[in-house]
Write a protein that binds this DNA or RNA. Structure first.
Lengths: 243, 243
DNA sequence: CGGAGTTTTGATTAGCGTCAAACACTGTGG
DNA sequence: CCACAGTGTTTGACGCTAATCAAAACTCCG
């Protein structure tokens, strides 16, 4: 509900340039020759404070958004009020890929840290996707990747133990951050509360604490400040696939 | 591995006409005037016997397929061999919507009953999607629906009890069949074995049996032959959302 | 230093898995 | 028509995973 601070509304110099990975680069600068007909979609930067829910399920989204800075997560709320986190969003991620195509989506999005995101004009964006075959391909690829992740998540929740799910979440975040060059020495920023992990892996916060304690005692991970360090990567990998 | 019987290879008169719902109609006959430039994608009908796995994870798919007749399911196999069913496929469903765009997908597809499906040429189909805005919209809509279902499934597996998941699966199938006019008097074809339900809901077959027994004893459902009848719809709905 | 949010720990219990055996259903060949 | 095999379902006994409840400890910030 609260308005983002003015500092967060200022232009974002990093967005659409390099750091966000391929998708934003492709979108902001049409790369194929045939694309000159389609101008880059109009964009507008916005910010949100940590803990702020900046998209609500079934609210009209005025545009398709790309996360520029900070972490977020997409979630849905069950009728009884419990929360299921569907995905964590890292810089460069679209806030729901298929949401690009649709005004109203059934998920909400909350900022985990202070974030900045870039809202593209939907019409422009769809136009761009349809006109530029490179963008079309890129976009299909993103849809596929998102679907693959959703399938992975279904398999995890349906078939794996709490230990495995937590291990896989850690590894999955590490891999994604690694692509973004944000892992050094097996350590990376980790702004998640145990409640978030619980809501993503389908267990209770209490049990997440026990799993973490077990992992720590086994010398697998170390958490200091808002950083997580993997101390025994092979073993964590083994656990994540075990059984 | 076995070749489908010749009867299954004969032309499918129902496909692409009416019964499959909007998607095939749109795809087989471009509806918007602007679409005359894009011919309907080439298509080829094929069949598979019940239990046959007719697409294997990461095999090259020669085309994007639409299920014409019979039931199937998409699944993935965990490293330890266990199976997670990702979705049940009913006549008119695309076999993985995003798979339309990609040659190799990470899921396998098996026939639940004898099936007939229609393989569209991928290049033609993508062309059609890009050229005809109605098809593009329809396709986006299908992607969105598929993503919504995946999200629902994540929430179910992460947050609901076995009773709820089974109830929701039954209701979800009933709703989808209802749209296809294949529900009469709250009863519908039900070719699933309890093993399938177990693999879809993330429980064991033994427990599925217990849930079914409980539902039967409570006068909620009745299973005869390969048909399922819902006897107390409001109560089944209540259970599916309870807690 | 106070207070809210978060994590840890312990005790108990519910839900579901595992194992094993019995039972039912269907189609096959004699 | 029956025997039999193969597949699928039901039932019981028991054990383990993770939920629940409750309290204490710890952290972060004002």
């Amino acid at each position: 509900m609260g308005q983002p601070a003015t500092a967060l509304d200022s232009p974002c110099t990093t967005c659409s340039v390099r750091e966000l990975g391929v998708c934003s680069t492709v979108l902001s600068r049409p790369v194929s020759p045939a694309a000159s007909a389609a101008p880059a979609p109009r964009q507008q930067h916005r910010g949100a404070r940590a803990r702020q829910t900046f998209y609500r399920a079934n609210d009209a989204m005025d545009g398709a958004s790309l996360l520029c800075r900070g972490w977020g997560f997409a979630f849905s709320i069950l009728p009884d009020g419990r929360r299921q986190i569907l995905s964590f969003l890292l810089p460069g991620d679209f806030i729901s890929t298929v949401g690009v195509l649709k005004e109203r989506v059934g998920v909400s999005v909350q900022a985990l840290t202070d974030v900045r995101y870039c809202a593209y004009d939907r019409t422009d964006l769809i136009n761009c996707i349809r006109t530029d075959s490179k963008v079309f391909d890129k976009f299909s690829e993103l849809c596929n990747a998102e679907r693959d992740e959703a399938n992975e998540m279904v398999a995890d929740l349906g078939r794996r133990t709490a230990d495995q799910r937590v291990a896989r979440l850690i590894l999955s975040l590490m891999t994604r951050l690694s692509v973004r060059k944000q892992v050094r020495d097996n350590a990376f920023e980790f702004p998640l509360r145990q409640q978030h992990i619980a809501d993503a892996t389908g267990v209770t916060p209490v049990h997440v604490s026990r799993v973490f304690t077990a992992f720590r005692n086994a010398g697998l991970i170390e958490i200091k400040g808002r950083f997580l360090k993997v101390l025994n990567l092979p073993e964590l990998r083994r656990i994540s696939n075990a059984r």
